[in-house]
Design a protein around this nucleic acid. Structure first.
Lengths: 153, 153
DNA sequence: TTTCATGTAACTTTACATATTACATGATGG
DNA sequence: CCATCATGTAATATGTAAAGTTACATGAAA
């Protein structure tokens, strides 16, 4: 598995929650995502702290969306997850004395910083509502092709 | 240590080689980079295969630059290294049956692909010669400030 | 008061770059 | 020729961070 699929995971979870009335348990979400309820709780914790979702204990408890899907972007989700590292590459040594390495670091830092900014802008233009719409389109196409089964979710 | 500092490492090595007449041994490069000669050989192997550097065995052997620094860009280096993964994030499951996950993957794939293209364009505009010039500027500034010691490399 | 569900700490597993060890190959100088 | 230097590479170990697992505490609702 690739490293750090948290963004992918929570987006998947959020869209399932959006397609569902009422709360979804960590167990149910874990089942959708072929993982463990504890992983779900751990990963979703950041979104709860950011106020994007709510969690309730006890009977009929679970996770519910607490935001407007058209107002929340992937950038918000990324931030709620604690802004994990975007790039798999980095400097070998962040505080080199060697002037050669300082020049290399400066060039790479500039580049990666600039590109990360572009990524964040791109994320900032992608709302959860857009993802949900794309899913709806895929579901419609699937139903048209396959008949009317419900097992696409 | 952050993951995958190979690009940073080989750039550091190349600039040291550029600043040196005659071949540099893996041992010498490893000393500059605070690592092991075997790591140097392994990392530089891709550059050799791409024809960017040459290596010679025996007495007076070692690594030499085999390209025009003003013609080679970071993109060439990245490719010579085997185009390692750029992003630390990725999809949880690359071939999902779930339509929700397919929609999420499609959005993330598009985004990351677009941003990776921008990064490669940026890399393609950054030559080794530019890095070497920046190092030269830093060295001049250092000498002006510190006197004329030679130990900046 | 039992059951359901989350919250979280502690620990294990997995993946991957990096580090290390060991040994083969080949070039050069004497 | 051969001792030495240097690369080439396979095999193995280590470090790190996400993901997975186990265990148990907390709190809400039937």
């Amino acid at each position: 598995m690739k490293r750090d699929s948290r963004l992918s995971s929570v987006l998947h979870a959020l869209l399932h929650m959006a397609a569902n009335d009422g709360p979804m348990t960590s167990e149910a979400l874990a089942h959708c995502m072929h993982t463990n309820p504890v992983v779900v709780r751990r990963t979703m914790a950041g979104l709860r702290e950011a106020g994007l979702v709510r969690s309730e204990k006890g009977h009929n408890g679970g996770w519910t969306i607490a935001c407007d899907l058209s107002e929340v972007t992937l950038r918000d989700i990324h931030m709620a997850l604690g802004e994990p590292a975007v790039f798999a590459m980095g400097n070998r040594n962040e505080t080199p004395e060697c002037l050669v390495e300082q020049a290399v670091n400066a060039a790479l830092d500039d580049t990666f910083h600039e590109i990360e900014t572009l990524l964040m802008e791109r994320f900032g233009r992608l709302t959860l509502a857009q993802l949900a719409e794309d899913f709806a389109r895929r579901l419609a196409a699937y139903r048209q092709k396959m008949g009317n089964e419900q097992n696409a979710i």
